[in-house]
Design a protein around this nucleic acid. Sequence first.
RNA 1: GGCCCGUUGGUCAAGAGGCUAAGACGACGCCCUCUCACGGCGUAAUCAUGGGUUCGAUUCCCGUACGGGUCACCA
Length: 547
Amino acid sequence: MDTTALANLLFPDITKTIEDYEAQYPPRNLPEGAVVTRIAPSPTGFVHLGNLYNAIGERLAHQTGGVFYLRIEDTDQKREVEGAVEAVIDAMNFYGVHFDEGATVDGETGAYGPYRQRQRKELYQTVAKSLVLRGLAYPCFCTEDDLKAMHEQQEAGKENYGYYGKYAVWRDRSYDDIAAEIAKGTEWVLRFRSEGDPENSVAVLDGIRGEVHVQENFTDFVLLKSDGIPTYHFAHVCDDHFMRTTHVIRDESWLATLPIHVQLFDILGWQRPIYCHTATLMKMDGSSKRKLSKRKDPELALSFYRQAGIPQEATWLYLLTVLNSNFEEWHLANPDASSREFTFSLEKMGTSGSLFDLEKLDNIAKEYLSRQTTDLVYDGLLAWAKEYDPALAARMTEKEALYRGAIGVGRGGEKPRKDYGSWRDAAAFLAFYDAETFTLTDGCPENADGENRRDILNRYLETLDFADTQETWFAKVKELTDALGYAVQPKKYKKNPEDYKGSIVDVTNLLRVALTGRQNAPDIWEISHVLGETETRRRLEAYRDAQ
RNA sequence: GGCCCGUUGGUCAAGAGGCUAAGACGACGCCCUCUCACGGCGUAAUCAUGGGUUCGAUUCCCGUACGGGUCACCA
């Protein structure tokens, strides 16, 4: 076979060589040990947890003086969605992940581009042509039906699936046969001519798992699709070589195709990057675990957390506790340090698929929010509201002092309250402060209803003085409790219920319901001061008169 | 089915030949307490399994089971 003739027949327009690209994309001038890595999403419009998960590469790169970049894997035109690149960038931006180079909303930056694969067609074809020249690639004219028939035959015969051996019908065809098909205009794909043996095993050093052993690839997989655009496998190898990537961080499902990737790197004489295969995020489905699925699980989408209003930092705190086994300990020791100060290490990543624990996320988020200042919480809630609850945003702006006061209740000090772990929960929790959203959700305590309700509220209103200290205020409540026949000490009432109408709990809960609409709420005195005297009295009177 | 990866309490997990097998979330109980939240103390709960190697295996090796992934001109 005259491979030069074949190469020119297949790629008449390609005049560049691999050397040209080697010169165009020289090795990066970076300090020793610098990590160059990337995230490489396909623009399907769906940004998921895995994308953020892999964005820990940003930490690795920046901890080592390396480079983190964004590459768009748009080789599958059918699945592409408009605005998807913007969505990825926006989502990453939202979580504080910044790129040193790569695709941007309106173009790109960096010297190793283009960073959109479809714009790199010539580069792939140049590499492909070199492979043809070396007799390592050949065109295949099989139709979809041919391949389907092949697969069925292999299934029936319980053979290995794939294009290999006697099934590789175009592997050794003559130049004339090929030229004839080309002349007819038959569509073709370019296949790799594999010399691999399924009996052989290849050892690959994984940055997370240590040494893994995979079966040598023996199939003649597709390098270039019929539109001349590469498959993921070929594009990955070309791009990560010429972009001088040192670490490829990706989900463990890629372990299955690792053989063809290392085969390509080896045969092209290129240094393999360090592969880091992360464990898959799982979910409980009935009684068994399964991979988080795009169709079934809303929590896979990054937008899920943003909509729910889980603060970015809290999301990172949780993700890092799942990703790096020593993170949680570090965070416990440095509760006020930003997660960005943590030194991330691949070796501390887990290798088995872990269940995503929304409850723990909530706990971490509550803990995180409880430590924040009123200003930060107010700003965070407002920013979220502007996007997802405009009516709330309007109310917050109009009644800023009220909302700041409400957020400040129980904040600061040794044991701050942990009432909410998300902006959505915060919005619901704070609703009673605002007269516009105040609703009665709990009923009146039984022992303090009817005439008692009227008596207690009247008496309370009479003695209420906003100039009091909290101590004085509570002393007055006790006085009133006792005077109206309720037990000041709940224990006493429990012991001898017949001696009292109820206990102080009934009295204070009545006040809570009047002021907050519910029996469980933060401190009455603090709440009253946030509401202001006018509103406090209005609510108490309204509740008294509502019977 | 082939190939690959994995398996420590309900969940996330530390431990890498000898430990009463950490810690966190959750559950439960007690304490604190005007409710709730917070906080404190405590309880229950784990090395999938069989066989090696070894004086000794959760830890090393092999098999089995189970779980997961993957076998496209999708990434």
